[in-house]
């Protein structure tokens, strides 16, 4: 399991390849399921031109690691990689990568969805968006994935 919180730009597909080449044992996994969250240029009807992502160093990594561990314990998966951006970013920039490797696809799909959903719910990050008019607005809540409860029920 690897969790990275970084200011640097994120190339999610390079990160998957690098992790696979350096950490995973060749030929053992049957697939990797990934979720890549990217920045939108709109939110609640307003045009968004930039965003700053704030976090709580230490607590953020700790809670992402806890969610990843729950996924590793709950499903038959081989490894989980999470990379999350912080700082200044712009529309279409990748914000987050969740990648899950497993022998069979079902557990990787389920674990990947679990990690992104609970990361969004528990990891301390805060988005501050800048609109075309230059107005700065703190995002007050994330949209909910209707599969969150279902994903949790499956685990417990």
């Amino acid at each position: 399991m690897k969790v990275v919180v970084q200011h640097e730009a994120l190339d999610p597909y390079r990160a998957i390849k690098h992790h696979e080449d350096t950490v995973l044992e060749s030929g053992k996994h049957g697939g990797v399921v990934s979720f890549v969250g990217t920045m939108r240029d709109f939110n609640h009807g307003e045009n968004v031109t930039a965003m700053n992502l704030d976090y709580y160093p230490g607590m953020t990594e700790m809670h992402i690691e806890a969610v990843c561990q729950e996924a590793m314990d709950g499903w038959d998966v081989m490894d989980v990689l999470v990379v999350h951006r912080v700082g200044d970013m712009y529309p279409s920039d990748p914000i987050v990568l969740v990648a899950v490797w497993s022998a069979h696809r079902a557990s990787a799909f389920d674990a990947c969805r679990y990690v992104i959903n609970y990361l969004k719910e528990r990891a301390p990050f805060w988005k501050c968006e800048v609109t075309t008019e230059g107005k700065k607005t703190w995002v007050e809540h994330n949209s909910k994935d209707p599969g969150v409860a279902e994903s949790r029920e499956k685990l417990v």
Partner: peptide
């Protein structure tokens, strides 16, 4: 660690206050 207003504290504890989280 997440907690609530009723948690008892000890010397040197770090207490953080923040709005709902919006990562991912």
């Amino acid at each position: 660690e997440y907690t609530d207003l009723g948690q008892a504290l000890k010397n040197g504890d770090e207490v953080a206050f923040f709005p709902p989280v919006t990562g991912g």
